[in-house]
């Protein structure tokens, strides 16, 4: 019974390694997705947090996993169509405990995304819930999708 579980976990080790390799591929192609690195980033976290960007019609949604972080730990700014998320995550070890495993690192990060469409800077909201940061950016009126009515001419 135990050997089956062990094998099972090794299967996921292999998948995790594959994922790490894929992540490296993603990093190499960051430019192609319109994701730019801030020049200060080399000193801190290489590429954290990871962004998923959705086009939801009237809004752009930028989402990032920021486990353990609250609104106090995060700064979000928008300037010239470039969205920047920065902050700091401290690795807190509970007092009086020995450490067996440490995979959740302390981070100081600052990442920027060049947004692909014009944004109404007054209508940007950001909230963090259950460790997920969601930034909603309203597109400028001229960038919103428009329905064009097709008229039949007689």
């Amino acid at each position: 019974m135990f050997s089956r579980l062990t094998d099972f976990d090794r299967t996921f080790d292999v998948l995790d390694e594959l994922r790490r390799q894929m992540d490296r591929v993603w990093n190499d192609y960051e430019g192609a997705w319109g994701i730019t690195r801030s020049p200060t980033q080399a000193l801190t976290s290489a590429n954290w947090p990871r962004f998923n960007v959705l086009d939801a019609g009237a809004n752009l949604l930028v989402m990032a996993d920021v486990p353990g972080m609250t609104e106090k730990d995060l700064q979000v700014s928008l300037e010239d169509g470039v969205l920047t998320v920065s902050g700091e995550q401290k690795a807190v070890a509970p007092e009086g405990y020995a450490v067996h495993r440490r995979e959740r690192p302390a981070l100081r990060f600052g990442r920027s995304v060049a947004l692909p469409v014009k944004i109404d800077a007054e209508k940007v909201t950001a909230n963090v819930k259950d460790g997920v940061l969601t930034i909603s950016l309203a597109k400028a009126p001229e960038a919103r999708p428009r329905q064009i009515t097709v008229r039949a001419s007689s």
Binding site: D65, R102, R104, D130, G131
Partner: peptide, 28 residues
């Protein structure tokens, strides 16, 4: 289905083991 192995910290003192795992966006 494919799953992510969450990052964990594991601590121990004389009373307990303490496992802390990052599961952002998990449905409660």
């Amino acid at each position: 289905p494919l799953a992510i192995r969450p990052r964990v910290d594991v601590f121990e003192n004389e009373h307990e083991l303490l496992v802390v795992a990052d599961v952002p966006g998990a449905a409660k």
